[in-house]
């Protein structure tokens, strides 16, 4: 008889939000639960895909932020 785990447990496991004890129990159950393994594979594939999505801000946006920081620093030192 294997312990019951939910897809939400596997999500917490995949995102390293389980205790060491839960982790060991889930790893013992995984070889016997193809549905949970499928969920884990989906999460890993999704993580890989999302890591590949890279959107850079326009350099002007970064420049505006740095200038704002500089201006607010001058404001503080003058007050």
């Amino acid at each position: 008889m294997h312990e019951e785990f939910t897809p939400e447990d596997i999500i917490r496991y995949a995102y390293r939000e389980v205790t060491e004890e839960e982790k060991n129990r889930i790893e013992t159950a995984l070889p016997h639960r193809p549905d949970l393994r499928q969920m884990l594979e989906d999460i890993e594939a999704l993580e890989g895909g999302m890591n590949a999505i890279k959107i850079e801000p326009h350099p002007t946006s970064v420049k505006i932020i740095i200038e704002e920081s500089h201006d607010s620093s001058l404001h503080i030192s003058n007050s």
Binding site: I53, I55, P57, V62
Partner: peptide
């Protein structure tokens, strides 16, 4: 800090 996280935040 901005350069470290700009891509993640913008994405």
């Amino acid at each position: 800090l901005v350069k470290r996280y700009k891509q993640k935040v913008m994405t």
